[in-house]
Simulated assay, not measured.
Amino acid sequence: MKTKLTEMLGIKYPIVCGGMMRLAYPPLCAAISNAGGLGNLTAAMYKDKKDFTAAIRQVRELTDKPFMVNVTLLPSIGIDNKQYHAYFEACAEEKITVMEIAGAPLNRFEDGVWFKLLKDAGVKIFHKVGSVRHGKHAAKAGYDGVIAAGVEEGGHPLNENVATTVLTPRMAEEVDVPVITAGGMVNGRSLAAALCLGADGILMATRFVATKECQVHEKVYQELINRQENDTVLYGNSIGLQGRALMNESIAKVLEIEARGGGLEEILPHISGIYGDDIWREGKMDTGLIPVGQSIGLIHEVLTCKELLDGMVAEAKEIMTRNCALFD
């Protein structure tokens, strides 16, 4: 399956893993790349350059295929500029194939010093955006591609709230760099639809949680399978940081605080991520932030990364071949 994305990055399938805090460790990253996609190593899980560099090298021990590093430039209580510097230095020194930048644009962060450093090191940089105007800015600024993130996605969809089915073709109309679709991507139908809408590939994260290489508790798998597309909600608009997460006791409390005009101090304990290990390692799904997208409604089983990606591509090919026959 060849697209501008696969040819640019040297990958078999145009299927990319997004940033996954507390989940996108080297084993999962390498498994996705070995399966033909583009694995993701999420930088924010590492506190210093030494540990982060070690993780990069661990991925390379597990795969000889390209992989991506995610850095999210958002206001954070746990990451300061010194840590961001460490991430960018390590990626440049290790000559990472490609980086996913979410949040603020890297070319404007500290006058673009790190953007230039990475570009000079040969690192491809993709910017995750939620609007056409931001995509056009990214292409003009020299990013190698854009990730068009629809409001369906988990994590932090931007508050433009444009659906993937509209954002993708609009982005493809307006930029001349590869476009990766994110938000609601989960199976072969998603892949086929995204390509028909003008994308060069897809990015998904929620679906990769329900893979055998993702090191989570069995209860997490079952929760994703049991929940439906209407079981996620948007939160955080009142504090200027929109997110999408699975509805549970913590998120219900956040919505209640926002409805009565409560502020960041009240909301933060529920969304800060302090319950991450309880969720992913112990399967306690009632408390804490679980940043998944509406695609959970289409997750029905736990597969290996290879089974998932091979199956997605086979399904996409079958759908596109069948639909082309309608015009014979």
Rank of each mutant, 00 (worst) to 15 (best):
M1Q: 11
M8H: 03
K12R: 11
I15N: 03
V16A: 10
G18Q: 01
P26C: 03
A35D: 00
G36Q: 02
G39P: 01
A43N: 02
A44P: 01
Y46S: 07
Y46N: 04
K47G: 07
D51W: 08
D51F: 12
F52N: 04
T53H: 06
T53Q: 12
A55M: 04
V69E: 02
V71T: 04
L73F: 15
L73V: 13
L74N: 11
I77Y: 14
G78R: 11
I79L: 12
Y84F: 15
V98E: 08
E100I: 03
E100L: 13
G103N: 11
P105V: 04
F115H: 03
K116S: 12
L117M: 15
A121R: 01
G122A: 09
V123E: 01
G130T: 03
S131P: 04
H134R: 09
A139Y: 06
G142P: 09
I147K: 09
I147P: 07
A148R: 09
V151P: 00
N161R: 15
V162T: 12
G184Q: 08
G184A: 11
M185W: 05
A194N: 03
A205E: 02
T206G: 01
T211G: 09
T211C: 14
K212P: 00
V216H: 10
H217G: 10
K219S: 12
L224E: 03
V233P: 05
L234H: 10
G236T: 02
L246G: 07
L246K: 10
E249K: 15
S250N: 10
I257N: 05
E258G: 10
E258V: 11
A259M: 12
R260I: 11
P269S: 07
S272G: 12
S272K: 11
Y275P: 00
I279S: 02
T287G: 00
G288F: 02
G288L: 06
L289A: 07
G293A: 05
V313Y: 04
E315C: 12
A325L: 12
D328T: 14
